[in-house]
């Protein structure tokens, strides 16, 4: 019988699932995902997790609870770094311990450290370590890793072409709904687990699309562009997400094709609180592009989100209408 490995559908799932899935399947395991975030998952997570954590971390607990009894293994790697000379949020590193000491009756947890700070090559040795849980044959693991990297590459390619990650992961395409107004291009900056979890962000991307807006997210920006843009900074940004967000923000400012920028942040996120302010200052100083910050937490009242999104797009359209009027008369 196939060994079942559970992956919580949150946090870095949105970034690495195509890689993880193929890797584990190539090793003969069956990958089981937790359900999409629901009210119950959120309630469970909020109840279990320390109060001071951000919402996405709380959700992780809920997803673990949702899936733990259906699997032989839970994949909760100790994520220290996913890029050279950069770190990610320290809570990701503490996640396996936080879960182990809070949640009872857990299956076996694969908590191998993923730390690519010194070299990308470390990814392969990490894969070998994780692979040992399923097979002992190193050639098999090597092959599985190669396939996984290919799958990840294809995923990244599609996202860079402008496909919303969840459209690929859920295998259904969302379409921009045409309306009477001109199409707008709105860029969205934020952690992938905030941007693509429809429950927590109250379906923000879909709402924009239904309003005749083409949504461009940070994940669609090519890594090379980001590398190039962040050279403008005085010193190196040591957060993986920070670099991605700032590089993308510069890119969005400079392409001349973006009509507005939304920063979606989770209340209580340390990284967001710095980066958001930094980006806002840059945008306001160097451009005229409309910018808005949207905060998410446990709220279920959608009116707040709807009002802000609606007002933001109204503002952009109003601005264009006015500019058009001006040019028509003089």
């Amino acid at each position: 019988m196939k060994k079942k490995i559970g992956i919580p559908k949150c946090l870095l799932y949105y970034q690495y699932y195509p890689l993880w899935k193929v890797f584990f399947e190539e090793l003969g395991a069956e990958v089981i995902l937790s359900d999409n975030t629901t009210k119950k998952i959120m309630d469970d997570g909020v109840k279990l997790c320390v109060d001071e954590a951000c919402l996405p971390i709380k959700l992780f607990y809920g997803h673990v609870l949702n899936i733990k009894d259906k699997v032989d293994y839970l994949f909760i790697p100790r994520l220290t770094s996913v890029s050279k000379n950069e770190y990610i949020c320290p809570k990701f590193g503490g996640l396996p311990d936080m879960i182990k000491h809070t949640v009872k009756d857990l299956p076996k947890i694969i908590d191998t450290e993923i730390n690519l700070r010194k070299s990308k090559k470390k990814a392969f040795t990490t894969a070998l370590e994780i692979g040992q849980f399923f097979v002992s044959d190193k050639t098999k693991i090597k092959k599985a890793f190669k396939e996984a990297i290919t799958s990840y590459g294809e995923y990244r390619k599609k996202v860079k072409q402008g496909v919303i990650p969840t459209d690929i992961l859920d295998k259904k395409l969302s379409v921009v709904k045409k309306n009477d107004e001109n199409m707008l291009n709105i860029a969205v900056i934020g952690h992938s687990y905030n941007l693509y979890d429809k429950y927590t962000n109250m379906n923000m991307i879909e709402k924009l699309k239904n309003n005749g807006i083409n949504v461009i997210t940070v994940d669609m920006v090519d890594g090379k562009i980001i590398d190039e843009k962040v050279k403008q900074l005085n010193k190196q940004m040591f957060w993986y997400f920070g670099r991605k967000a700032i590089g993308s923000a510069y890119h969005f400012m400079e392409t001349g094709e973006i009509d507005g920028i939304i920063y979606l942040m989770a209340f209580g996120c340390g990284v967001d609180s710095f980066i958001c302010d930094f980006i806002e200052r840059k945008i306001r100083k160097n451009s005229e592009i409309p910018f808005i910050v949207l905060n998410i937490d446990e709220h279920t009242g959608e009116a707040g989100m709807d009002t802000r999104l609606e007002a933001f797009t109204d503002m952009i359209r109003w601005r264009y209408r006015d500019e058009n009027n001006l040019s028509a008369h003089g």
Binding site: P290, I292, D314, M315, R319, D322
Partner: peptide, 13 residues
């Protein structure tokens, strides 16, 4: 600016 909303903010949480 020039009779058009160019920025706004609402209280957060």
């Amino acid at each position: 600016k020039k009779g058009v909303v160019y920025d706004f903010a609402m209280n957060t949480v």
